[in-house]
Design a protein around this nucleic acid. Structure first.
Lengths: 115, 115
DNA sequence: AGTATCTACAACCATTTGGTTATACGTTAC
DNA sequence: GTAACGTATAACCAAATGGTTGTAGATACT
Protein backbone atom coordinates (compact mmCIF):
# COMPACT_ATOMS: atom_id res chain seq x y z
CA UNK A 1 0.00 0.00 0.00
CA UNK A 2 1.98 2.94 -1.31
CA UNK A 3 0.85 6.35 -0.18
CA UNK A 4 0.14 8.49 -3.18
CA UNK A 5 3.09 10.79 -3.61
CA UNK A 6 2.28 12.34 -6.94
CA UNK A 7 2.42 16.06 -7.09
CA UNK A 8 0.71 18.39 -9.51
CA UNK A 9 2.80 20.80 -11.55
CA UNK A 10 1.50 23.64 -9.41
CA UNK A 11 2.59 21.91 -6.22
CA UNK A 12 6.06 21.33 -7.62
CA UNK A 13 6.17 24.95 -8.77
CA UNK A 14 5.34 26.10 -5.25
CA UNK A 15 7.96 23.89 -3.62
CA UNK A 16 10.84 25.04 -5.82
CA UNK A 17 9.61 28.62 -5.86
CA UNK A 18 9.53 28.60 -2.06
CA UNK A 19 13.11 27.32 -1.92
CA UNK A 20 14.31 30.00 -4.34
CA UNK A 21 14.84 32.63 -1.65
CA UNK A 22 17.61 32.62 0.91
CA UNK A 23 15.49 34.04 3.72
CA UNK A 24 12.96 31.28 3.19
CA UNK A 25 15.66 28.62 3.04
CA UNK A 26 16.99 29.94 6.33
CA UNK A 27 13.53 29.76 7.88
CA UNK A 28 13.28 26.14 6.77
CA UNK A 29 16.70 25.41 8.28
CA UNK A 30 15.87 27.00 11.60
CA UNK A 31 12.46 25.42 11.92
CA UNK A 32 13.79 21.97 11.05
CA UNK A 33 16.11 22.34 14.03
CA UNK A 34 13.46 23.68 16.36
CA UNK A 35 9.97 25.06 16.01
CA UNK A 36 10.00 28.82 16.27
CA UNK A 37 7.41 31.58 16.53
CA UNK A 38 6.94 33.97 13.62
CA UNK A 39 8.05 36.93 15.74
CA UNK A 40 11.23 35.13 16.83
CA UNK A 41 11.97 34.43 13.19
CA UNK A 42 11.25 38.05 12.32
CA UNK A 43 13.83 39.14 14.86
CA UNK A 44 16.51 37.25 12.94
CA UNK A 45 16.16 39.15 9.68
CA UNK A 46 16.60 42.74 8.62
CA UNK A 47 13.04 43.17 7.40
CA UNK A 48 9.60 43.82 8.81
CA UNK A 49 7.50 41.31 10.68
CA UNK A 50 4.98 41.44 7.85
CA UNK A 51 7.61 40.48 5.30
CA UNK A 52 8.72 37.48 7.36
CA UNK A 53 5.11 36.52 7.94
CA UNK A 54 4.63 36.50 4.16
CA UNK A 55 7.70 34.31 3.67
CA UNK A 56 6.31 31.85 6.19
CA UNK A 57 3.00 31.87 4.32
CA UNK A 58 4.82 31.03 1.07
CA UNK A 59 6.56 28.12 2.77
CA UNK A 60 3.32 26.97 4.32
CA UNK A 61 1.51 26.96 0.96
CA UNK A 62 4.35 24.86 -0.43
CA UNK A 63 4.03 22.42 2.49
CA UNK A 64 7.62 23.06 3.59
CA UNK A 65 6.55 24.21 7.03
CA UNK A 66 3.48 23.82 9.18
CA UNK A 67 2.15 26.30 11.70
CA UNK A 68 0.19 25.74 14.86
CA UNK A 69 -1.14 28.13 17.44
CA UNK A 70 0.25 28.27 20.94
CA UNK A 71 -1.45 31.07 22.81
CA UNK A 72 -0.96 34.21 20.81
CA UNK A 73 2.06 32.78 19.06
CA UNK A 74 2.18 30.78 15.85
CA UNK A 75 4.88 28.16 16.02
CA UNK A 76 6.48 27.27 12.70
CA UNK A 77 7.87 23.81 12.17
CA UNK A 78 9.88 22.57 9.19
CA UNK A 79 8.29 19.61 7.41
CA UNK A 80 10.91 16.98 6.60
CA UNK A 81 8.44 14.98 4.51
CA UNK A 82 8.11 17.81 1.99
CA UNK A 83 11.90 18.04 1.76
CA UNK A 84 11.95 14.36 0.93
CA UNK A 85 9.30 14.94 -1.70
CA UNK A 86 11.53 17.55 -3.34
CA UNK A 87 14.46 15.14 -3.14
CA UNK A 88 12.42 12.52 -4.94
CA UNK A 89 11.69 15.01 -7.70
CA UNK A 90 15.37 15.63 -8.25
CA UNK A 91 16.08 11.92 -8.00
CA UNK A 92 13.73 11.42 -10.94
CA UNK A 93 15.86 13.74 -13.07
CA UNK A 94 19.03 11.97 -12.07
CA UNK A 95 17.35 8.70 -12.96
CA UNK A 96 16.47 10.01 -16.42
CA UNK A 97 20.09 10.88 -16.99
CA UNK A 98 21.26 7.50 -15.76
CA UNK A 99 18.86 5.80 -18.13
CA UNK A 100 20.38 7.73 -21.00
CA UNK A 101 23.82 6.56 -20.00
CA UNK A 102 22.54 2.98 -19.77
CA UNK A 103 21.12 3.23 -23.26
CA UNK A 104 24.36 4.64 -24.59
CA UNK A 105 26.29 1.84 -22.89
CA UNK A 106 23.93 -0.75 -24.33
CA UNK A 107 24.38 0.78 -27.76
CA UNK A 108 28.15 0.56 -27.53
CA UNK A 109 27.81 -3.00 -26.28
CA UNK A 110 25.61 -4.05 -29.20
CA UNK A 111 27.92 -2.31 -31.67
CA UNK A 112 30.93 -4.21 -30.43
CA UNK A 113 29.02 -7.48 -30.76
CA UNK A 114 27.51 -6.77 -34.17
CA UNK A 115 28.26 -9.63 -36.58
CA UNK B 1 41.49 17.07 -3.99
CA UNK B 2 37.85 17.98 -3.64
CA UNK B 3 36.42 20.23 -6.30
CA UNK B 4 34.85 23.27 -4.70
CA UNK B 5 31.13 22.66 -4.62
CA UNK B 6 30.00 25.63 -2.56
CA UNK B 7 27.26 27.72 -4.03
CA UNK B 8 26.39 31.32 -3.31
CA UNK B 9 22.88 32.21 -2.23
CA UNK B 10 22.29 33.73 -5.64
CA UNK B 11 23.32 30.54 -7.40
CA UNK B 12 21.00 28.49 -5.24
CA UNK B 13 18.23 31.01 -5.88
CA UNK B 14 18.73 30.62 -9.62
CA UNK B 15 18.70 26.83 -9.50
CA UNK B 16 15.46 26.54 -7.55
CA UNK B 17 13.88 29.44 -9.40
CA UNK B 18 14.69 27.76 -12.71
CA UNK B 19 13.08 24.53 -11.53
CA UNK B 20 9.92 26.34 -10.42
CA UNK B 21 8.30 26.26 -13.86
CA UNK B 22 6.86 23.18 -15.51
CA UNK B 23 7.95 24.16 -19.04
CA UNK B 24 11.51 24.54 -17.81
CA UNK B 25 11.38 21.26 -15.91
CA UNK B 26 10.19 19.60 -19.10
CA UNK B 27 13.07 21.12 -21.05
CA UNK B 28 15.49 19.75 -18.46
CA UNK B 29 13.88 16.31 -18.75
CA UNK B 30 14.05 16.26 -22.55
CA UNK B 31 17.59 17.53 -22.76
CA UNK B 32 18.83 15.08 -20.14
CA UNK B 33 17.54 12.33 -22.43
CA UNK B 34 18.96 13.83 -25.59
CA UNK B 35 20.41 17.14 -26.62
CA UNK B 36 17.89 19.16 -28.57
CA UNK B 37 17.87 22.37 -30.58
CA UNK B 38 16.01 25.39 -29.26
CA UNK B 39 13.62 25.35 -32.21
CA UNK B 40 12.81 21.67 -31.71
CA UNK B 41 12.06 22.43 -28.09
CA UNK B 42 9.95 25.40 -29.13
CA UNK B 43 7.86 23.09 -31.33
CA UNK B 44 6.89 21.09 -28.26
CA UNK B 45 5.19 23.90 -26.38
CA UNK B 46 2.25 26.15 -27.02
CA UNK B 47 4.20 29.35 -26.88
CA UNK B 48 6.46 31.44 -29.08
CA UNK B 49 10.04 30.56 -29.99
CA UNK B 50 11.16 33.66 -28.10
CA UNK B 51 9.43 32.49 -24.92
CA UNK B 52 11.09 29.07 -25.10
CA UNK B 53 14.42 30.71 -25.86
CA UNK B 54 14.02 32.75 -22.68
CA UNK B 55 13.26 29.64 -20.66
CA UNK B 56 16.41 28.02 -21.99
CA UNK B 57 18.36 31.14 -21.01
CA UNK B 58 17.00 30.92 -17.45
CA UNK B 59 18.08 27.28 -17.25
CA UNK B 60 21.47 28.13 -18.68
CA UNK B 61 22.07 30.90 -16.15
CA UNK B 62 21.22 28.39 -13.42
CA UNK B 63 23.67 25.89 -14.90
CA UNK B 64 20.94 23.30 -15.41
CA UNK B 65 21.60 23.11 -19.14
CA UNK B 66 24.46 23.99 -21.44
CA UNK B 67 24.21 25.15 -25.02
CA UNK B 68 26.62 24.71 -27.89
CA UNK B 69 26.45 25.79 -31.48
CA UNK B 70 26.04 23.30 -34.29
CA UNK B 71 25.70 25.20 -37.54
CA UNK B 72 22.84 27.61 -37.17
CA UNK B 73 21.33 25.55 -34.38
CA UNK B 74 21.96 25.79 -30.66
CA UNK B 75 21.89 22.38 -29.07
CA UNK B 76 20.70 22.29 -25.47
CA UNK B 77 21.95 19.61 -23.14
CA UNK B 78 20.78 18.91 -19.58
CA UNK B 79 23.57 19.13 -17.02
CA UNK B 80 23.36 16.22 -14.57
CA UNK B 81 26.04 17.75 -12.33
CA UNK B 82 23.85 20.73 -11.52
CA UNK B 83 20.99 18.38 -10.66
CA UNK B 84 23.30 16.62 -8.25
CA UNK B 85 24.27 19.95 -6.77
CA UNK B 86 20.60 20.66 -6.09
CA UNK B 87 20.20 17.21 -4.57
CA UNK B 88 23.07 17.90 -2.23
CA UNK B 89 21.36 21.08 -1.11
CA UNK B 90 18.22 19.19 -0.17
CA UNK B 91 20.29 16.46 1.45
CA UNK B 92 21.71 19.12 3.74
CA UNK B 93 18.22 19.99 4.95
CA UNK B 94 17.39 16.35 5.57
CA UNK B 95 20.61 16.05 7.50
CA UNK B 96 19.66 19.00 9.70
CA UNK B 97 16.42 17.29 10.53
CA UNK B 98 18.14 14.01 11.26
CA UNK B 99 20.51 15.77 13.61
CA UNK B 100 17.54 17.17 15.50
CA UNK B 101 16.14 13.70 15.86
CA UNK B 102 19.50 12.43 17.09
CA UNK B 103 19.64 15.16 19.69
CA UNK B 104 16.12 14.36 20.85
CA UNK B 105 17.01 10.70 21.08
CA UNK B 106 20.14 11.53 23.04
CA UNK B 107 18.07 13.68 25.39
CA UNK B 108 15.60 10.87 26.06
CA UNK B 109 18.50 8.53 26.62
CA UNK B 110 20.12 10.80 29.21
CA UNK B 111 16.76 11.36 30.94
CA UNK B 112 16.15 7.66 31.36
CA UNK B 113 19.58 7.21 32.87
CA UNK B 114 19.36 10.16 35.28
CA UNK B 115 20.02 9.07 38.82
C1' DA C 1 22.24 35.54 -55.35
C1' DG C 2 18.15 34.95 -53.04
C1' DT C 3 15.26 32.58 -49.78
C1' DA C 4 14.17 29.98 -45.82
C1' DT C 5 15.58 28.56 -41.15
C1' DC C 6 17.50 29.17 -36.50
C1' DT C 7 18.58 32.26 -33.22
C1' DA C 8 19.17 36.50 -30.36
C1' DC C 9 17.49 40.58 -28.64
C1' DA C 10 14.76 44.78 -27.97
C1' DA C 11 10.50 46.82 -26.75
C1' DC C 12 6.35 46.25 -24.70
C1' DC C 13 2.67 44.49 -21.49
C1' DA C 14 0.16 42.14 -17.58
C1' DT C 15 0.94 39.68 -13.52
C1' DT C 16 3.58 38.21 -9.62
C1' DT C 17 6.90 38.99 -6.12
C1' DG C 18 9.08 40.93 -2.17
C1' DG C 19 9.17 44.56 0.33
C1' DT C 20 6.80 48.58 3.02
C1' DT C 21 3.39 50.93 6.47
C1' DA C 22 -0.99 51.00 8.71
C1' DT C 23 -4.92 48.80 10.79
C1' DA C 24 -7.42 45.40 13.34
C1' DC C 25 -7.89 41.51 16.32
C1' DG C 26 -6.85 37.84 19.74
C1' DT C 27 -3.97 36.76 23.80
C1' DT C 28 -1.17 37.73 27.74
C1' DA C 29 0.38 40.55 31.62
C1' DC C 30 -0.32 43.98 35.02
C1' DG D 1 -9.77 47.06 32.27
C1' DT D 2 -5.92 48.46 29.82
C1' DA D 3 -1.50 48.12 27.94
C1' DA D 4 1.72 45.31 25.46
C1' DC D 5 2.62 41.53 22.46
C1' DG D 6 1.94 38.39 18.41
C1' DT D 7 -0.32 37.95 14.28
C1' DA D 8 -2.95 38.62 9.95
C1' DT D 9 -4.22 41.39 6.30
C1' DA D 10 -4.96 45.35 3.31
C1' DA D 11 -3.13 48.92 0.41
C1' DC D 12 0.62 50.34 -1.86
C1' DC D 13 5.08 50.30 -4.62
C1' DA D 14 9.24 48.92 -7.40
C1' DA D 15 11.30 45.25 -9.61
C1' DA D 16 11.19 40.75 -11.66
C1' DT D 17 8.76 37.30 -14.40
C1' DG D 18 6.61 35.23 -18.35
C1' DG D 19 4.58 36.12 -22.18
C1' DT D 20 4.09 38.78 -26.83
C1' DT D 21 5.62 40.88 -31.60
C1' DG D 22 9.12 42.74 -34.46
C1' DT D 23 13.82 43.22 -36.19
C1' DA D 24 18.19 41.64 -37.52
C1' DG D 25 22.25 38.46 -37.98
C1' DA D 26 24.11 33.74 -39.23
C1' DT D 27 23.76 29.66 -41.53
C1' DA D 28 21.84 26.49 -44.94
C1' DC D 29 19.43 25.39 -49.24
C1' DT D 30 18.61 25.74 -54.27
Amino acid sequence: MVVDTELTDDEVDRIFRALADSTRRDIVRRTLVQETSVSTLAGAYDMSFAAVSKHVAVLERAGLVTKHASGRERLVRGNPESIRRAQRLLDAYEQIWRERISRLDALLESDSTTD
